[in-house]
Simulated assay, not measured.
Amino acid sequence: MVTTSLPTERPRSRGRAAGFWWLALTAVAIAAFAPLPYLSTSLRGLAAQDDAFAASYAALPGWAQAAFYVHIVCGGIALALSPLQLAARIRTRLPRLHRVNGRIVALSILPAGLGGLVLAPSNQAGLIGTAGFGLLAVLWIGFVGAAVRAARRRHFAAHRRWAVRTFAMTYAAVTLRLWLGVLTPVLAGFGMDPEAAFELAYHLVPFLCWVPNLLLAEWLLRRPTVPVVSRTGGAGA
């Protein structure tokens, strides 16, 4: 049997590995550090320190503040654990871990999404924020529900597709902060006041934090699958 050379196999593998580690490390970093100020200091205390986010939530009734804490804690759990669901080696070698971790992620997304839906009308971006963050919460819950339903029916191809879409929504917690970190200095560089630049950037991110994620996920899901040719000339899965 003829031996086949695959010069592009290793770069593709390295690219996928680099992409996975970028997603995993950024997800864990945001999941660990973003909630810390709100868990270590009260909303009123942070509002007194001129934290605009805390100030917008400190004035809410107790039940809405409870929804805020549910959102950041459960959302953080889902964000930190979701990269494990993307790891093919875990799916194939440790299927029980994949199932258990998937259940934890799904059970975390449900209250986190509901909390986000409750908080959507209280965001700092007004109606566009209510629409963007509200739709994000609805789709997040809907996608994870579809992923769970497909898994229970043993429709594993459909389950993986819905899981990818779910992660695209979960990762919005990371891309929101990335977009703010990029847009604010760029807008300020055009002569805007830094506070005004941040305010404009925050009016853009309610949709910008998740729509490109979802479009990228759909593009990846629709790419033609190229079979991997083995070094002995056969085709592998």
Rank of each mutant, 00 (worst) to 15 (best):
A47W: 15
W63E: 04
A158I: 06
A125N: 10
G115T: 02
L178T: 13
A80G: 07
S5A: 12
V174D: 06
L180C: 02
L97P: 01
A67Q: 08
A237H: 15
W63A: 06
A168K: 07
W21C: 08
R91E: 01
V164A: 05
R149I: 13
G181Q: 09
R93T: 15
D51H: 12
W22H: 12
A201Q: 04
R177V: 12
T41Q: 00
L25I: 08
I77Y: 05
A151W: 07
L183Q: 01
C74A: 14
P35F: 01
R165K: 12
A112Y: 09
S122A: 13
L6G: 03
I90L: 06
S5P: 11
V138D: 14
L204F: 08
A125C: 08
Y171F: 14
W162R: 07
L214S: 08
D51W: 03
T170A: 14
G62N: 04
A137W: 13
L208V: 01
A150L: 08
S108F: 05
R154H: 10
A32V: 08
L221D: 15
V226N: 02
V228E: 14
A112E: 03
R10E: 11
R93I: 03
G115L: 00
G142Y: 11
V182K: 09
P224E: 07
C209F: 02
A58K: 05
W22S: 06
R154G: 05
S108T: 01
A151S: 15
F33H: 04
D50I: 02
A59I: 10
A137L: 11
A87Q: 00
Y171P: 00
A197Y: 00
L204W: 02
L215K: 08
R10Q: 08
Y57E: 09
L208M: 12
A125P: 15
R44T: 11
A188Q: 11
R89K: 00
A146Y: 11
R223F: 13
L215C: 07
L119C: 08
S230K: 13
V28E: 02
A48V: 00
L215D: 10
L25T: 12
L114R: 02
T130H: 14
V144P: 07
A173I: 11
A150Q: 12
L60A: 04
L187Y: 11
L84S: 02
G102T: 03
H71T: 10
W22P: 01
F33Y: 03
A55Y: 09
T225D: 15
A58T: 03
A34S: 00
L114W: 04
A29E: 05
V229I: 13
P212Q: 07
L214C: 14
T232S: 15
A48C: 09
F207C: 04
F33P: 01
A106G: 09
N101W: 08
A88I: 04
P227W: 05
A67T: 04
V164M: 05
L25A: 14
A235L: 15
F156V: 15
P224F: 09
R160T: 10
T92R: 15
T26I: 10
E199V: 04
L215G: 09
A197V: 01
Y202D: 08
L127T: 14
L36S: 14
P185T: 13
S82K: 04
T92V: 06
G145H: 12
L110T: 01
L39E: 01
V228G: 07
L127C: 07
H155P: 01
A54P: 03
G145E: 13
L114I: 01
A87L: 03
